[in-house]
């Protein structure tokens, strides 16, 4: 598969990152488009960190933390949900589809779920990019038509 789309995955050390490691150990296949950034907890995520990923060229960003109620730091993952929701609003203001950013909950034992989620997210972002390209193509002749 091509390196487009480029996905940045902010993963919690205690769950999703371990799950990604487990996916590898279990020989689970998932697209190589995903670049993992390990965080001590998804509570480390702030809105600008997510925006920065897009500024630096990411097509999609996923934040993967512990399941609700099982955060190593009690409620870091719940704080992350709020920040991701806020960052989605910030993205929408800039004209970027907020669906390019998603939060997932993946436990350390769920290697196959990490592989599946990554694959689905890459496919979803690839689909969104395709949709954007199509809408651009549709808009161009219409606009030129209006002018003439």
């Amino acid at each position: 598969m091509s390196q487009e789309p480029l996905i940045i995955a902010f993963c919690c050390h205690y769950c999703a990152f371990t799950a990604a490691d487990l996916a590898g150990t279990m020989r689970q296949q998932y697209p190589t488009n995903t670049r993992i950034v390990r965080l001590p907890c998804t509570g480390k995520v702030d809105a600008n960190m997510l925006l920065q990923a897009f500024v630096d060229g990411a097509d999609g960003v996923m934040v993967a933390g512990c399941e609700e109620g099982s955060c190593h730091f009690i409620q870091g993952n719940l704080r992350a949900i709020k920040r991701v929701t806020y960052a989605k609003d910030l993205l929408a203001e800039t004209g970027i589809n907020p669906e390019r950013l998603e939060m997932y909950h993946i436990a350390a034992s769920q290697g196959p779920l990490f592989a599946k989620t990554s694959k689905e997210f890459v496919e979803k972002i690839a689909g969104l990019i395709e949709e954007d390209k199509m809408s651009l193509k549709e808009e161009t002749p219409e606009t030129s038509g209006e002018k003439t």
Binding site: A47, N48, L51, Q52, F54, V55, L90, E93, T94, I96
Partner: peptide
């Protein structure tokens, strides 16, 4: 922090 957010939003919007 907010300066960083607004600056990045402007950069993204300009790119869009």
């Amino acid at each position: 922090k907010e300066v960083g957010i607004v600056a990045n939003q402007l950069r993204l919007k300009a790119k869009e």
